[in-house]
């Protein structure tokens, strides 16, 4: 089966006063229906810029978008706004980080969801639209949808607001859902509920989901595949199991090590990645991660001069952009130990 979403060599850049800001640099991936792709990275890693490109939401007066984004067989990049608009909300829907600011404060929630439905169902009458909206509100777990229909966003709790956003996104049965940090603004307990809801809905509607987050916990809980981004590039990509269990890129390992763990000594466990992400207008030469990488010196000048390519390592589509993967380091360490043993 052809994947519903296929992204090939996507590049997004913004001309700024300090030079060209390269937010996304040659990103490729694909998502099939019924699967969730987690996109992980720090702020500024290009994950949100990627998400916006999937709906053609970049302001083309200020951003340059190249590459290919194919949704259900239709190419998006470079198409006129009116054509992309017909895909938005119907084939691809999006939910955002902060449901309070993402909902219009002056409009009743029912009306906001109804608006999303009617724009793609021109013939739908009032009664039909209302029934559909209430059914959707009920489906995403909003109690008393009939009464809640006429309320305003400020009368909802954070979790309920995100449910409204999800109802709005799913009201047209889109084949692809893009969730940009859908749980970041929510309490942890509500977070789990929303993730569970997304997983249920995916199973029910066979939706393809792109789940953008900076939280590896969220990825572990809800994603099938994962894509780790750094400075606008994919550094590691594969099944969630592979990547989280046996991370090969030092950045992925670093991200995992910087998540507090409940097991073991919390002080000793928490190891932040030194330094901060590079400026996107003045990227380092060679591997973009080398200034923060603990192993950058191990290969002489190579990490500083030669950008690593994203290539397949191991089995099951595990891909990596690093000259010295964890596995290779481990092998070298083993050799060193053996050699030391022999010498002794």
């Amino acid at each position: 089966m052809d994947p519903y979403l296929r992204v090939t060599d996507l590049r997004v850049s913004f001309p700024t006063a300090d030079g060209v800001l390269r937010a996304v640099e040659g990103v490729s991936f694909a998502v099939e229906g019924g699967r969730t792709l987690g996109v992980v990275g720090e702020s500024g890693s290009g994950k949100s810029a990627t998400a916006l490109a999937l709906l053609g939401l970049h302001d083309l007066r200020r951003a340059t978008v190249t590459g290919q984004v194919t949704i259900g067989g239709r190419e998006l990049v470079g198409r006129p706004e009116t054509e992309i608009r017909r895909l938005r909300g119907r084939n691809v829907a999006m939910i955002f980080q902060d449901p309070l600011s993402a909902l219009h404060p002056y409009h009743r929630v029912g009306r906001q969801i109804a608006e999303a439905y009617r724009v793609h169902h021109r013939g739908a009458g009032r009664g039909e639209t209302r029934r559909r909206v209430i059914e959707m509100m009920d489906r995403v777990g909003i109690p008393q949808p009939d009464r809640r229909y006429d309320q305003y966003p400020h009368e909802f709790s954070g979790g309920m607001r995100q449910r409204v956003m999800i109802a709005m996104a799913l009201v047209n049965d889109p084949a692809l859902l893009i969730a940009d940090e859908p749980t970041t603004a929510l309490d942890v307990t509500v977070q789990a509920q929303i993730l569970e809801l997304l997983t249920d809905l995916r199973a029910e509607f066979r939706t393809a989901i792109v789940l953008i987050t900076h939280d590896l916990g969220v990825v572990g809980q809800a994603a099938d595949d994962v894509l780790v981004m750094y400075a606008g590039r994919i550094v590691e990509q594969g099944h969630v199991e592979q990547v989280l269990r046996t991370p090969q890129h030092p950045y992925t390992s670093g991200l995992l090590a910087s998540v507090p763990s409940l097991r073991g000594d919390p002080e000793a466990d928490l190891r932040p990645i030194p330094g901060s992400p590079p400026s996107l207008t003045e990227l380092p030469t060679g591997c973009v991660f080398h200034p923060r990488c603990r192993h950058a010196g191990a290969l002489g000048d190579r990490c500083r001069t030669e950008p690593p390519e994203l290539r397949v390592v191991g089995t099951g589509g595990h891909r990596l952009a690093c000259h010295l993967p964890t596995r290779e380091r481990a092998r070298r360490r083993a050799e060193d130990t053996t050699r030391a043993g022999v010498a002794r």
Partner: peptide, 14 residues
């Protein structure tokens, strides 16, 4: 504002 982005993401005309 985010809600304007939401409106565009819904596929509403300009």
């Amino acid at each position: 504002e985010d809600f304007v982005r939401t409106a565009r993401a819904k596929g509403l005309p300009r």
